[in-house]
Design a protein around this nucleic acid. Sequence first.
DNA 1: CGGGCCGGTCTCGTTTTGGAACCGCGCGGG
DNA 2: CCCGCGCGGTTCCAAAACGAGACCGGCCCG
Lengths: 164, 164
Amino acid sequence: MRYEDLADLPCSITRPLVILGDRWTLLILKASFTGVRRFNAFQSTLGISRSRLQDRLGRLVEHGILTRRQADDGDHVEYRLTRKGHDIYPILMAIRDWGDAYMAPDGPPAHYRHRDCAGEAHVQLACDACGTGVTARDITPEPGPGMLTHLRPPGSGRSGRQPD
Amino acid sequence: MRYEDLADLPCSITRPLVILGDRWTLLILKASFTGVRRFNAFQSTLGISRSRLQDRLGRLVEHGILTRRQADDGDHVEYRLTRKGHDIYPILMAIRDWGDAYMAPDGPPAHYRHRDCAGEAHVQLACDACGTGVTARDITPEPGPGMLTHLRPPGSGRSGRQPD
DNA sequence: CGGGCCGGTCTCGTTTTGGAACCGCGCGGG
DNA sequence: CCCGCGCGGTTCCAAAACGAGACCGGCCCG
């Protein structure tokens, strides 16, 4: 099995990870959220090699996570988050919460404050129905519609998989 | 700058990513959450090469995310999540929410249900103070204690950085 | 015309990865 | 006792990914 084939598995954790799961991609997106838009700015703030950066930006554009366009005011190129890209923010905030908890011995390097009230923003995993916070132990995965169509793809007899 | 040196930056997103941000590590942890504990089980469910798996499991144990021990009942080895590892779950759920939204054209492959009430669990980014849900646009990062000690490490005059 | 900045490409040496063979151990059966 | 097997783990090599830096054409400005 080639690595990219993991993207075919019926799992909404695996599929994004095939795109986002490498050394640089999430760091590039983090930079995007802090306002970085230009090729050279990404390169100097991250320390990534130019060829790698070019490759990663291209993939993100392919996947509709960033857009590449000429800036309004000038002639340079801008890479900006799409809505799909914007929605990656909770992933970064979940990573931050974990980083603050376990890799910040001197306290959090940054507070991420709600602009309106100066409170701090955190991710929480909660049940839609009862509203209470939950952890991994409170959750049972069970097959959903995307699993069923994967088990019997229309007009085919392929084998399927269990939900991960 | 070598890649590992990114772990020295005062940023709670960058630091975890140096550990978790590669092709396999989060996939290994995802398998852990589904109950996979044994070397061969990881290898066959993920399709990772044995040498790579050995390396990644070793790193996760080093970082206190997994523990390696002999199973109670038998003679085989078990890799189990520590509390630190357990707390990675929200990261995986944030990835899943994004995957369900943008990479599951046939609907979610799996429902992650609250065991007690059968509701579905989702991550949300909310303000601790006012409780309202927020997005990237509502948030302003500002320096925290970990940034200040990084700017002036005790007994040194190193230069520091802005919060990312 | 000359220099600088821009995004982008090319080349080359290094690092990381995948695949598969190999190893030692403990166990269980013949 | 010996043989085979499944286990976690290691070693080796070829292939892929990567980093560093030179290089390129386009554009603007002086």
